[in-house]
Design a protein around this nucleic acid. Structure first.
Length: 425
RNA sequence: GGAGAGAUGGCUGAGUGGUCGAAAGCACCGGUCUUGAAAACCGGCAGGGCGCUUAGUCGCCCUCGAGAGUUCGAAUCUCUCUCUCUCCGCCA
């Protein structure tokens, strides 16, 4: 959420940033509502001050047993407080409307974010490793996985539906190994603290990180409750510190959390219907940081590196792109996507998305810190990134490490997690 | 699921209709003392919002889990909700 005062003081900047994202949101009503809000507040406050003054008179009248003043004042007060209540009702309506509108305005992109309309305009900034060469035609991961008997989409469809998968035998083991492998690196080498959060959250948490109200249809909801299946660990982990003032000496706080993620994938009908790429349920190891505003962009770089490290250990070729203004997520001020090379599909595929939200989420969830012991609390900056999407990493391994006979070599770094097995066949 | 108790500042906790945005203690910050530290003593220490001719060691307003109500006036009384704890039941 943007700061109302800043929006009103920088109307053109906000309009421009909405336009750069390729969106069309009219903020003129918001600005006039803000003015109305200020008028009402001033009126109400003056009235209340007067009300309080009269109340003090009544107090003294009672202590002095002066019944004349008492009766005079009492008869007025009721009407007076009634009119205040009416103004307050209007103020409530105005503030609710302001809030509704603010919740739908996306974050302002960082100045370093390239302008663009779609993913076509994202800018590649880094490439690591190289594409593996094959003496045969590399297969898709679903063909490899089904032949090895470790992926089963048909039975998943039977028990749940489309966009689900069953992992079996060494497939399940590989998924579990990857989770452990990623967690160990982030915890032991990168200094993150592990979190095992609830997999369902209330709507307040979903508002806090920006999924609600705008993207309500993307989440699974448990009917008759206020529980929502988390679309990413970002939601519970970021909201862990909602309504808190964090100790500046503890910043940056770094958390890593493995969770299943649930997405309705509304609007993605027909996209990536085959394979593991786009599922209603998938596993992800998520990195979350709470930082001082001054260092958040440095922390974004190191978060990106932490995520890249996993692919490097697995020796998987990847590239990093900066998302352009038109392709960036709603809450983000700057996002890097890590895209892994998938030879079976002859393309780079997003495997991690690392973002700095600046104070956009912190303001929604009210997460603050204090610069000095006597300073006013300020909002922290929040960041997160996948470290990594587990299912897509499994896909990358199957496709990049496949052999001509249909077997798959297990990356060396992963073997200790796979009972020292070297090959899936 | 049943019964009971509770929710107050960073923490502990007092307060049952006006003298309360709030005692006391702890923690923290500043000062005095000290070679330094500790102790002792003195002082400070909640969040949010609005205003300004002087942007301040400034003025005002709101907030004692959330919301509604009673009252001239609510931390205090009533109702609803949320959460926490204890006991019982059930259960991985």
């Amino acid at each position: 959420m943007l700061d109302l005062r800043k929006v009103c003081a920088n109307i053109e900047l906000v309009k421009e940033s909405i336009r750069k994202r390729g969106q069309d949101i009219d903020i003129t009503e918001l600005v006039s509502l803000s003015e109305r809000r200020r008028e009402l507040i001033i009126k109400i406050q003056n009235s209340r001050a007067e009300l309080n003054r009269i109340n003090d008179e009544i107090k003294t009248a009672i202590s002095k047993n002066d019944s004349t003043i008492l009766e005079n004042r009492r008869s007025d007060l009721k009407k007076f407080s009634q009119s205040i209540k009416e103004m307050e009702k209007e103020l409530d309506r105005v503030e609710e409307e302001i809030n509704n509108q603010l919740l739908f305005i996306p974050n302002i992109p960082h100045f370093s974010v390239p302008y663009g309309k779609s993913s076509e305009d994202n800018v590649e900034i880094k490439r690591w490793g190289k594409k593996p060469e094959f003496s045969f035609e590399p297969k898709n991961h679903w063909d490899i996985g089904e032949r090895l008997g470790i992926l089963d989409f048909e039975r998943a469809a039977k028990i749940a539906g489309t966009r689900f998968a069953v992992l079996k035998g060494m497939g399940a083991r590989l998924e579990r190994a990857l989770i452990d492998f990623m967690l160990d690196i982030h915890i032991n080498e990168h200094g993150y603290t592990e979190i095992w959060p609830p997999l369902m959250v209330n709507s307040r948490a979903m508002i806090g990180t920006g999924q609600f109200p705008k993207f309500k249809d993307d989440a699974f909801h448990i009917e008759g409750t206020d529980y929502h299946l988390i679309p990413t660990a970002e939601v519970p982990v970021t909201n862990l510190h909602a309504d808190e003032i964090l100790d500046i000496n503890q910043l940056p706080l770094k958390y890593v959390s493995y969770t299943p993620c649930f997405r309705a994938e509304a609007g993605a009908a027909g996209k990536d219907t085959r394979g593991l790429i786009r599922q209603h349920q998938f596993n992800k190891v998520e990195l979350v940081k709470f930082t001082h505003p001054k260092s958040s962009y440095d922390e974004l770089e190191s978060l990106l590196n932490d995520a890249c490290k996993i692919l490097e250990r697995l020796n998987l070729h990847y590239r990093v792109v900066v998302l352009c203004t038109g392709d960036m997520g709603f809450s983000s001020a700057k996002t890097y996507d890590i895209e892994v090379w998938l030879p079976g599909q002859n393309t780079y595929r997003e495997i991690s998305s690392c973002s700095n939200f600046e104070d956009f989420q912190a303001r929604r969830a009210s997460i603050k810190f204090r610069e000095g012991t006597k300073s006013k609390p300020e909002f922290v900056h929040t960041l997160n990134g996948s470290g990594l999407a587990v299912g897509r990493t499994l896909v990358a391994i199957l496709e990049n490490y496949q052999n001509e006979d249909g077997s798959v070599t297990i990356p060396e770094a992963l073997r200790p997690y796979m009972g020292n097995k070297e090959i899936l066949s």
